[in-house]
Computed example of a mutant assay.
Amino acid sequence: MNNQTKCLEAEEIDITCSPSFYKKVNLNFWESLHSIWEKFVRQLLADPNELQVTQKVDRHGNIYWQAYDPVTGKSFASGSEVDVSMWIEQLYRY
């Protein structure tokens, strides 16, 4: 073993002091707040009996569509917009 081996001390970097860090955190905060506000207003103004169709993303990153009819209590989900459209048409056909 060599006694002349020196260990270098880790250099500490305080990322919280960088202006770009604050910009990113601040931007993410305001984007999140804006998104919450939009959802709140949309929910507040929505007709409770209106058909609801939303695009969602599952935990694997796959995009799918979900439709819900509060009048009948029926719902349908599919990865295809066309399938959801056909379900809606069938729902209101009768």
Rank of each mutant, 00 (worst) to 15 (best):
4 Q>P: 02
5 T>L: 12
5 T>P: 03
7 C>H: 10
9 E>L: 01
9 E>G: 07
10 A>P: 06
10 A>K: 12
10 A>S: 03
11 E>G: 07
13 I>Q: 01
13 I>P: 00
15 I>S: 03
16 T>F: 08
16 T>A: 04
17 C>G: 14
18 S>I: 09
18 S>F: 10
18 S>P: 01
19 P>Y: 02
20 S>F: 06
22 Y>G: 13
22 Y>A: 12
23 K>H: 10
23 K>P: 01
23 K>S: 04
25 V>I: 00
26 N>Y: 07
27 L>F: 02
27 L>I: 08
27 L>C: 01
29 F>T: 13
29 F>R: 14
30 W>Q: 02
31 E>C: 07
32 S>C: 04
35 S>L: 06
35 S>V: 03
36 I>V: 05
37 W>L: 14
37 W>A: 10
39 K>M: 08
40 F>I: 10
42 R>Y: 13
44 L>H: 13
44 L>R: 15
45 L>Q: 12
45 L>F: 06
45 L>Y: 07
46 A>N: 08
46 A>E: 02
47 D>K: 14
47 D>Q: 10
48 P>Q: 04
48 P>T: 14
49 N>C: 14
50 E>Q: 15
50 E>G: 11
50 E>N: 13
51 L>C: 06
51 L>G: 08
51 L>R: 01
51 L>S: 09
51 L>K: 05
52 Q>K: 15
52 Q>F: 11
54 T>N: 06
54 T>I: 08
56 K>L: 13
56 K>Y: 03
57 V>K: 15
59 R>W: 15
60 H>W: 14
61 G>D: 06
61 G>W: 12
62 N>I: 09
62 N>S: 12
63 I>C: 12
65 W>V: 10
66 Q>P: 14
66 Q>D: 15
68 Y>A: 11
72 T>Q: 06
73 G>S: 09
74 K>A: 13
76 F>V: 04
77 A>H: 03
78 S>G: 04
78 S>Y: 00
78 S>A: 09
79 G>H: 01
80 S>A: 02
82 V>Y: 01
82 V>I: 02
82 V>K: 00
84 V>F: 00
84 V>A: 00
84 V>G: 00
